[in-house]
């Protein structure tokens, strides 16, 4: 069972990186300090643990959201952050910030999720009108669509003098994550976990509408469940750490190449690899120009692209 080997290797790597992540940062922290220095323990609880947890949750839930979106749209080259869902979430928060600045955080999140869902539905409506013989049109149109919403966000923010404010969401990074400012991400983690129970439904949706109806699946309902999950994950990550592109695109593709698309078996590995690569990118971003930081999205872009290229140029398995 290659899948089991990958999962055990992934878990081992994840444990190692998580420990490493707890002890790497601007302030020196060693295991020994924890025993006699209460400030060291505080640092761990307030900053290092939340940061590590945020990277793990964002990485895994964004990878899962990407895998689900690729099944729903039946195209390997899409992911929520570049195809409108992420910018849609940004637009949602912006509107709330302008019109209801005093609204509690949870209300902002709900509205951001709804805006992200509307943006995803819009993308789906466009995709269904594209010729199925041109699969590359889907990601291209997605980029244009996401770009238009993003431009709208920038324009509104400029008018409202909120450019500084939105740049936090547009460029995702974990340096701002501290205790008390990331906990909503646990909801994203829960949503990603719950999607596992619908894994078979998403895999069947990936076979197409006829196949889904043939197997007695409520196709529209499965689509909607998937889109809501994607939108909630996107909205929560965008508002807490900002947009992290590529995770949702690269990770599902790598896992698909390694062990296929049977989501019930592969979703755990997708989550694991998303968490692993995101945390690794964050750690590299922390140490490369120490004590300065490189945003996680930049590092991930480089690592993810290299891994992906390596996989593409490998020989196919059955030849």
């Amino acid at each position: 069972m290659t899948l089991k080997i990958y999962i055990w290797a992934g878990l081992f790597g994840l444990a190692l990186l998580s420990i490493l992540s707890l002890f790497i940062g601007v302030i020196d922290l060693s295991l020994g300090d924890l025993w006699h220095d209460p400030a060291a323990f505080e640092l761990l609880v307030i900053s290092r643990f939340p940061r590590t947890a945020a990277a793990l949750i964002c990485g895994s839930s964004l990878a899962i959201a990407g895998a689900i979106m690729q099944m729903l749209v039946r195209n390997r080259f899409v992911e929520p952050m570049t195809t409108g869902t992420g910018p849609g979430a940004g637009l949602g928060i912006l509107i709330v910030t302008i019109f209801f600045p005093a609204a509690p955080l949870i209300v902002k999140m709900v509205l951001a999720s709804i805006a992200a869902l509307c943006a995803s539905l819009g993308f789906l409506a466009i995709v269904q009108r594209l010729p199925p013989t041109q699969p590359l049109l889907v990601p291209l149109v997605g980029l244009v669509y996401g770009g238009i919403i993003g431009a709208g966000v920038t324009f509104v923010a400029y008018q409202a003098d909120l450019i500084q404010y939105i740049s936090v969401w547009m460029n995702g990074e974990f340096s701002g994550v501290i205790q008390g400012r990331y906990e909503l991400l646990w909801i994203a983690a829960a949503v990603a976990l719950v999607t596992y129970f619908a894994a078979d439904q998403f895999a069947i949706v990936g076979l197409g509408r006829t196949a889904s109806i043939n197997l007695g699946l409520n196709y529209t309902q499965a689509m909607l469940i998937g889109l809501v999950a994607i939108s909630v994950v996107a909205a929560l990550t965008v508002t807490t750490v900002g947009m992290i592109p590529f995770v949702g695109l690269v990770v599902p593709n790598i896992v698909s190449r390694l062990v296929g698309d049977h989501l019930r078996n592969t979703l755990p590995l997708i989550a694991l690899m998303g968490a692993l690569l995101t945390l690794a990118s964050d750690i590299i971003g922390r140490v490369l120009r120490h004590p300065f930081e490189i945003p996680v999205g930049t590092v991930f872009g480089v690592i993810g692209t290299l891994l992906f290229l390596w996989l593409i140029f490998q020989r196919p398995r059955h030849e």
């Binding site: 039946r74 199925p132 895999a203 990936g206 076979l207 043939n214 296929g260 698309d261």
Partner: peptide, 10 residues
């Protein structure tokens, strides 16, 4: 179902 261009890796 009719054979589609896109086949999942199953």
């Amino acid at each position: 179902p009719q054979m589609a261009d896109h086949t999942p890796r199953l």
